[in-house]
Amino acid sequence: MKTYTNTGNKDTRSGFGAGLTELGKTNENVVALCADLTGSLKMDEFKANHPERFFQIGIAEANMIGIAAGMTIGGKIPFTGTFANFSTGRVYDQIRQSVAYSDKNVKICASHAGVTLGEDGATHQILEDIGLMKMLPGMTVINTCDYNQTKAATLAIAKHHGPVYLRFGRPKVANFTPEDGDFEIGKAVKLIDGNDVTIVATGHLVWEALEASKVLHEQGISAEVINIHTIKPLDETAILQSVSKTGCIVTAEEHNYLGGLGESVSRVLALHNPTPQEFIATNDTFGESGTPAQLMEKYGLNSSAIQQAVKNVLKRK
């Protein structure tokens, strides 16, 4: 079985910061906007290198989204940065009208998504943002799994014309995808070949899926692991090809099961190949304070939860 090595824990938001720094040097149309969370979003280096292209908006996210939309008129490529909660739910109508419906080339970059934000608690831990963003016509929705992939995605979305929601997180997590790897929007990455079950994971759950697959392998269960970094547009072909071989699937995400990756996958299966599916996701609940590891355990978002879900779905084949 193919194995992946953690080259050292790193936060995905730093991958975003590194990507933004590189874009600052390579694309003069890239501008960055932040609503008083420059350090948290790792935008400091871009700000230092290009003060004229960095816009500190203050604590005014609605205004930030509107300004970003306006800056595209004149050819700029705005990257907005704040927490996922304030990037989406707080400014939904601004994104809907001024960005999505207006077809503006704005990149909404959102850190601290999900329960792994940790101790700040539910006010800051959005678990509904993928649903909110994927429902907007024309919006591309990406949830990256590690530092390297977040950096690659940041570079890739600058080349894509159209609104993008790029979701990443706060904690340091395993970094295992290739350094300076390619990132193709809408293209799933098959990490491990398997025959018994398909595990489709996004964001922080990808590493957990890899960990689960190792344990399952020792137990004689061959799991195919797919990293779905792009939730919209979804790589339907990759999913259908895999389940045509395995016959069952587990989806895994740090998000409410309502509106998340799992539901998008369900639709594809319902239309083309009805297949037993189990969902690793939060169960229509808010988060709470705690360490990221405690919360992932409590809300059933880790390797052991994935292993159990695989066993459950195998019984339904």
Binding site: G74, P78, S98
Partner: peptide
């Protein structure tokens, strides 16, 4: 038309963004 409007209160932010872009473009 350069922006959708109708849901109120959004146009000034957009105008500011376009104004910032003009400044960056030395227009």
């Amino acid at each position: 038309v350069r922006i959708a409007s109708g849901s109120l209160g959004q146009g000034m932010s957009v105008a500011i963004g376009a104004a910032e872009a003009k400044k960056l473009n030395k227009d």
